[in-house]
């Protein structure tokens, strides 16, 4: 059963259409990459899924329900990480995570937080204020926040951006472990094509608000490059699509 269903979703800002009639779904336990060049509509799509932006048209169902009418239930089982989301700067890492853990009703908050900080390799940051952290460290705290409620659906908007290779590996390990242990479905936007090829079973490629290709990484590569490829080459496909060269759909 799909945990996320998006049907004919569009968003206009003024006279410009930012997301144009997109439909897709994410199954339980699936990791799906949402790709596209800057301005393709990825973040707007994620923000519509989270209810931060009202769609102009279309419907969104999460766990088979409408977000508007089932907000509390849905957000108890969902989490997100986005560079748009910050934390109160003067609070320590531990304090910030304690607040979020309480909001999610996490049992044994302190133990859960320490476990996540350890798994993400940032246990030494526990008592540091957010304003003392580097961009990459903040990204890891965001991920710790995103895993607090063992979500069934995780929306990650450029969540691994800014991480060094070691931190990115740890984060990916936690993501895959979460997927294995809790059957978490992940919708994941990134500009790192290697990560996407490695982690995602399916890819949705957006350009100028429209889906131009959807399927496994190799299928999407083939569809965009219009060549018979045996292996995924999403970086090449990305550059090709970003140049605005002709493309196939799905």
């Amino acid at each position: 059963m799909p945990v996320l269903e998006v049907d004919h979703l569009s968003k206009d800002f003024g006279k410009g259409r930012v997301v144009d009639d997109i439909s897709f779904h994410v199954e339980a336990g699936e990791i799906v990459g949402l790709l596209g060049p800057n301005g393709a509509g990825k973040s707007t799509t994620i923000h519509m899924l989270l209810g931060f932006i009202d769609p102009t048209a279309g419907t969104i169902r999460i766990f088979g329900k409408s977000l508007r009418r089932n907000r509390e239930d849905i957000f108890a089982r969902l989490n997100m990480a986005s560079p748009y989301a910050g934390f109160p700067n003067r609070l320590t890492v531990f304090e910030n995570l304690m607040i979020y853990a309480r909001l999610y009703g996490v049992a044994e908050r302190a133990a859960k937080i320490r476990n996540l900080l350890g798994r993400l390799g940032i246990e030494e940051l526990e008592t540091k204020q957010m304003l003392e952290l580097s961009f990459g460290e903040i990204a890891r705290v965001r991920l710790a926040k995103a895993f607090l409620n063992d979500p069934q659906l995780l929306l990650l908007d450029e969540a691994l951006g800014g991480l060094d290779p070691y931190a990115a590996t740890l984060a990916k390990d936690v993501l895959t472990q979460l997927q294995r242990e809790h059957g978490t479905a992940i919708l994941y936007t990134s500009h790192n094509m290697v990560d996407v090829e490695e982690m995602c079973s399916r890819v949705i490629f957006l350009r100028r608000g429209r889906i131009i290709a959807m399927g496994g990484p190799t299928e999407v590569t083939r569809a965009i490059l219009r060549e018979d490829r045996k292996k995924p080459a999403l970086s090449e496909a990305f550059i090709h699509a970003s140049r605005g060269e002709p493309h196939a759909v799905e």
Binding site: E72, G86, Y100, L103, Y104, K145
Partner: peptide, 9 residues
């Protein structure tokens, strides 16, 4: 922190 809070129950 607004959207962080908006994305909780």
């Amino acid at each position: 922190n607004v959207i962080g809070l908006l994305a909780t129950p």
